[in-house]
Amino acid sequence: MHRKSTGYLFVLPALLVLGMLIAYPVAYTGLLSVTDNQGNLVGLDNFRAILGARATPTAFFNTLWWVVGSIVFQVVLGVLTAILLNQKFRGRAIVRSVTLIPWVVPGIVAATTWAWMLHTEFGIINYMLTAPGVLEEPVGWLTNGSTVLPVMIAINVWKMFPFVAIMVLAGLQSISNDLYEAARIDGASFWEEVWYVMLPQVRPVIVAVTLLLVIWALNHITIIYAITRGGPANRTLITPIQIFRTAFESVQFNQAAALSVMFFAVAITVVFFYIRTTAGNAGASK
């Protein structure tokens, strides 16, 4: 029997596709980052140039805010939703399905819809806030420098918290009912049940989901690019969008590649922790 070689044959198509779509672009980006647009080796010049650009530190701090803000609210809201959806109440199945909608809606559709809803003059949000007198003046949600990044984060939270909720809910459902009953007999209130029984049991799920969310938030383009393209005045410029714009709007592929390489190093670190965590979970559950 040719067991080993048969195995390789089976994975070959997938490996070829991965090689063409992932390995080659990664390697080529590495090459671009140390050459100029003529293809001459220039050492670390591209890195120096892009790190010296005014937008780079702005994008770095925006990215930090974007990732931290998104993750904190996605996880907190997602976990609370999961706890709620784990309770027995009438219409639970419907509420569970409805909760999933934001996650199922394509990112570009959601972004466009939100852009219209948040429009300063015609948006329904300003209408709803000004009509009953909650706000005196319409707010320029997407044009005001101090509201635009929080609004982007809010949209991202809205888009992704159902994912957290569904994953954590699956974890909660695997907890034996006896544990809740034992806790109730031990004298736990509802929130003590949550704190001492539910959360410790789903902690591995929360950790894994959080790392996934960090990876996705780091790689995020759709919502921000579709709504603000990083503006106004770079207030929503996060690093992936900076890379995109440097490459395809300023046509500076080599500097974009240099930034990509640095960004890749950060992302790969998170991925490493994710893989180690999930592999650890698989080991622990045996």
């Binding site: 034996s176 006896d178 544990l179 009953e181 034992a182 806790a183 109730r184 007999i185 031990d186 004298g187 736990a188 001492y196 029984v197 410790p200 049991q201 902690r203």
Partner: peptide, 19 residues
């Protein structure tokens, strides 16, 4: 509520808190 009844229970599955 169970906690106000001053009872303790041993379950068939033991229901120990795994963590």
């Amino acid at each position: 509520h169970p906690k106000e009844r001053d009872i303790a229970m041993v379950f068939q599955s033991y229901a120990l808190y795994p963590h």
